[in-house]
Computed example of a mutant assay.
Amino acid sequence: MFDVNLPPPTARSLLLTVVGELMHSSTEEAWTTALLRVLGGLGIEEHAGRQLLARAAAAEWLERERRGRAVHWRLAGRGLGLVSNGIRRSNAYLAGPPSWDGRWLLLFVTVPNQLRTTRKRLYGGLSWLGMGNPLSSVWATPHVDRKDDLSELVKSLGLEASSLAVIGPVQATGMTDREIVRNAWDLTSIAESYELLLAQLEDLAEPSDEDDVLLTYLRLLNVQQRLMRRDPFLPELLLPEWVGREGAETIRRRREQWAPIAHARWAKIVQECAPD
């Protein structure tokens, strides 16, 4: 539905969207059939959906409980952590651009060539934290409040001995703030994705029924999550003109419009799927 020039969503990311939005507390549960119905509406076939749920249980971010012949699912500890972090980031993204005191959080890190998997995980984690790469082995973000998340990422990958993080303003001897922005992120590509999304939302016909609202809402949330991985969410002082702010505001309005209907429909689906 939303073609915004981003890599297509993975099945895992769609499942995280579903459970993160519809089961985001430890008390919210769902039957297998309810989850498979919604995942099917998002393009994941039943067999693939069952495999996806099994892998989520093995990774310990979902847990299951058999009740007779049916299975109930809820978020596990690891899943709650992932979802809570995602909700916190989403709320900040939808609230508008942050203020900025002129300081940067900088990471200097080297990863040996033989640790390709570690490097890939590091780069993915740094991107999620909104960090860009202005120079070789240097990563930067104006979001200095993410220092604890950065520390946790570095420790989880065992890179403490090859990393150095500092917080402070840049000096006149090197790149300016604007030059860091220009070199660290491909903002042109991200802007194109926002422009495509805004055009598609403007032309989008209103969902035809409650099921359509639920699936459209979840697809929009997934697009938001993928945009958040690419958009560094820079303060206005660093990026005065940015289409991403209009994009985030439009997403926020659509979410407010569709959320009550989507959640009500989900509650009905869970009830409909309950075993006799």
Rank of each mutant, 00 (worst) to 15 (best):
M1R: 12
F2P: 09
L6W: 01
P8C: 10
L14M: 13
L15E: 06
G20A: 03
L22A: 03
M23P: 06
S26F: 03
E28Q: 15
R37G: 01
G41V: 10
G43W: 07
G49F: 05
Q51I: 05
A54P: 01
R55K: 14
R55M: 14
A56T: 09
A56W: 06
A57N: 10
A58T: 12
A58R: 15
A58K: 15
E60C: 11
E65R: 15
R67Q: 13
G68L: 12
A70C: 01
H72E: 14
H72Y: 07
W73Q: 06
L75R: 10
G81A: 12
R88C: 08
S90N: 13
Y93W: 15
A95T: 03
P98Y: 04
W100L: 00
W100R: 04
W100K: 09
G102C: 05
W104D: 04
L107E: 01
T110L: 07
P112D: 10
L115G: 05
T118N: 09
T118A: 08
Y123C: 07
W128R: 13
W128A: 15
G132H: 00
P134F: 03
P134S: 01
L135H: 06
S136P: 02
S137K: 06
V138T: 14
P142D: 09
H143Y: 05
V144G: 04
V144H: 02
R146G: 07
R146S: 02
K147Q: 14
K147C: 01
L153M: 10
K155F: 10
L157D: 02
L159F: 04
L159H: 05
A161W: 09
S163E: 08
L164W: 10
G168R: 02
P169V: 00
P169M: 01
A172C: 02
T173G: 08
M175I: 05
T176F: 10
D177I: 08
R182A: 15
A184Q: 05
D186I: 02
T188L: 10
S189F: 06
I190E: 04
S193V: 11
E195I: 12
E195W: 09
L197I: 08
A199I: 06
A199F: 09
Q200W: 01
E202S: 12
D203T: 09
A205G: 09
E206C: 02
S208D: 09
E210N: 14
D212E: 15
R219Y: 02
R219I: 12
N222A: 15
N222M: 03
Q224H: 11
R226C: 01
M228S: 01
M228V: 00
P232A: 03
P235F: 11
L237E: 15
L238T: 08
L239H: 14
L239T: 05
P240A: 02
G244M: 11
R245Y: 12
E246P: 03
G247M: 08
I251G: 02
E256V: 03
E256P: 01
W258H: 03
W258G: 04
W258A: 00
A262G: 09
R265C: 10
R265M: 00
A267L: 11
K268Q: 14
I269Y: 03
Q271P: 04
E272I: 00
A274L: 05
P275V: 11
